[in-house]
Amino acid sequence: MRYIAYILALLAGSALSFEGAIYGELGKTIGQLETSFYNFFVGSIIMGLLWVFFGKGKLSYTVEAPKWSILGGLLGVVYLTSIVISVPFVGVGITMVAVIIGQLVMSMVIEHYGWLGSKKTRINKEKVFAVISMIIALVLIN
């Protein structure tokens, strides 16, 4: 059963690369911002349906929540648009490597300081080695 969970997680990651490659193509014809808009628009419809049928939480928390905690959508827009712009120029491989490095390094910093409501987890020796290996990978792939 554990193996199936690993396969599901691998498939989840592959879905992101397929998404980047396909949106790179769509971006060339209809425009990059327009492609992001399409993704968020249809995503809203899909998630809206899931929410109507399966939502067990409290959407109304939106109006009480601290304002910084509802900025996730804007950050997601920056992420997706940067992929749509980058893929046609440098390919899916480098794009994904760069996104992953940005993501992993920033998570370490956020957790080190316990920013944005995260649990404080100090940067340790292993994480420094990880960053060095990622920089070597980025230099090799470019």
Binding site: M47, G55, G57, A98
Partner: peptide
């Protein structure tokens, strides 16, 4: 793009503890 994605997951993590996963994703979209 990766940096903003990582900030997004922390922010959404904080929001979803009170609002729920589906609700957070819906609001993000």
């Amino acid at each position: 793009g990766g940096i903003t994605l990582s900030a997004q997951s922390s922010i959404n993590g904080a929001f979803s503890r009170k609002a729920g996963t589906i609700e957070t994703t819906f609001l993000t979209f």
